[in-house]
Amino acid sequence: MEDAQIIKLFSERDELALKETRLKYGGYCMIIARNILGSEEDAEECINDALIRLWNAIPPHNPKSLQAMIGKITRNIALNRYDSSNAKKRGGGQTELVLNELTECFASTDNTRNIADSLDIQKAISRFLKSLKTQNRIIFMQRYWYLCSVKEISQNLSVSESKVKMTLMRIRGRLKEFLEKEGIDI
């Protein structure tokens, strides 16, 4: 079913919307949540929660991209769930590895509380993403948005793992330079 039809079902409060969303994007959400949490059972719970939030969000929201919206919601839920100490202790899928990689770019300080709400930083990161070549941007997003493993990225894009690692390392370096140049406190 087309996204527009599914969104229409949500607007009409038809529960078929949930079934169709799960059918179309359940696997997609599973990848996101499982990469973050490392557990299929936890990921399934995230998807259930995400569907409920989606149900409560549409209407009033009328998303341009249903895929991106359910993906964002799932990712947020999974990252919040990861924040619990035990999820970290259990390994948490790719999250710990990804956070370790990113430490070279950031000072790991929490002096900028509520920073996620900063529109300026969001815009700066969008500009940074736009500046990247398409394949590099996909590699970067698959690693840091979808938290895919290096091996998965290499398989998805049919490139070697060493190329993925090298590309990521270069982009992280560019990101650090970019944020410093933009005057963003890192």
């Binding site: 990712r75 990252l79 920073i115 969001q122 997003m141 840091y144 948005w145």
Partner: peptide
């Protein structure tokens, strides 16, 4: 950063 990137 991960959270901000989430809103991209």
């Amino acid at each position: 950063f991960l959270k901000i990137l989430g809103k991209t």
